[in-house]
């Protein structure tokens, strides 16, 4: 089949168009998403197609918006709440953490919360400390939430469609740098189950685990490593919760070395947790300690040079790979 290349944001929009056509209980609320089509044009055209009952602009009321989404999900609708920046999801943390994440367990499994919070994070072009964060670890830490971080247009589409067909609250975290990136997305139905990692590049010498905007960067590093004769496998978990441990352990068993790349700050990050899983379950297949390449433990400064220094760059990934390859057991 001939490949069809579309942008990440178009893939997301396709998913919304298709799912809203399939399921009339899906509605979307957010700031500037209706007439204006959203800051990244993801919801463009939805108002014309599905009308003002199902596509609504909101005031700047994140706590209320998220809470309304959670309540509507409990009561049988399929809400999507769009939050402009993941940084602003902090205003609705009670509703995410104390309400959405807990309801299923608190009702003995009788109640479900099929709620999707779409948002975006990461650094990008000097938008400074309150608009640049990578906060997935906060949600990863909360049992009951699903945490999805697509890196490609195809994953964005398939995972969003799946999110709208399952029953648990989903933090669907896009990346501001990815909206304009292009990738192949097959025509027709595309549904990507949660908890299934994707090998973005096969290799034999080292496993590189990354997600979201660290995937393109890690693939570039892998390309350069290949020129140096190093074969890197790039694994994208795609969903951090649920996490595809099996795929991770399988890849590490093959390569015996692992570097985990995360844009978020190092401390308390998802990379640390993945690393601990590998040490616990694959210690004897490792030829070197697992290395983490992560953001510095800092808020993101406005200055572009400092912003760049705050998050992993291609050369940091290459250096980490070289260090795990040259590791000699003591």
């Amino acid at each position: 089949m001939a490949g069809r290349e579309i942008m990440y944001r178009e893939a997301l929009r396709e998913a919304l168009f298709e799912e809203m056509g399939r399921d009339e209980s899906i509605f979307i609320i957010g700031e500037g998403i209706a007439e204006r089509g959203g800051s990244y044009k993801v919801t463009e055209g939805l108002l014309a197609e599905y009308g003002p009952t199902r596509i609504r602009d909101t005031p700047i009321s994140e706590a209320g918006m998220i809470g309304v989404g959670v309540g509507a999900a409990i009561a049988g609708a399929r809400p999507i709440v769009e939050i402009l920046y993941v940084d602003f999801a902090m205003l609705g943390m009670d509703m995410i953490v104390n309400q959405a994440a807990k309801f299923r367990l608190m009702t003995g499994g009788r109640g479900r919360v099929p709620f999707v919070l779409r948002t975006q994070g990461g650094t990008g072009g000097g938008v400074a400390a309150q608009h640049s964060q990578s906060l997935e670890a906060l949600f990863y830490h909360i049992p009951g939430l699903r945490v999805v971080m697509p890196s490609t247009p195809a994953d964005a589409k398939g995972l969003l469609k799946y999110a709208l067909r399952q029953e648990d609250p989903v933090m669907f975290i896009e990346h501001k740098h990815l909206y304009m990136t292009k990738g192949e997305v097959p025509e027709g139905e595309l549904i990507t189950e949660f908890g299934v990692a994707d090998i973005k590049r096969e290799g034999t010498d080292v496993t590189l685990i990354a997600w979201s905007n660290m995937i393109p960067r890690t693939l570039q590093a892998a390309e350069e490593l290949a020129e140096m004769g190093i074969s890197a496998e790039v694994l994208d978990p795609r969903t951090l919760v649920p996490l595809d441990r099996v795929a991770i352990l399988k890849s590490v068993a093959k390569t015996n070395r692992c570097v985990i790349v995360q844009e978020a700050v190092r401390r308390g990050g998802v990379a640390s947790d993945i690393s601990s899983i590998i040490q616990e379950e694959a210690f004897y297949s490792l030829d070197a300690p697992v290395q983490i390449v992560a953001g510095m433990n800092t808020p993101i400064p406005f200055n572009l040079t400092l912003e760049e220094a705050s998050v992993p760059q291609k050369n940091d990934i290459i250096a980490a790979v070289q260090s795990v390859l040259h590791h000699k057991a003591a």
Partner: peptide
């Protein structure tokens, strides 16, 4: 202009 002589040393920018 993100300079170190800025009020916030270039760490804050317009929004801060």
């Amino acid at each position: 202009l993100q300079k170190e002589t800025g009020y916030c040393k270039g760490y804050g920018g317009s929004m801060h």
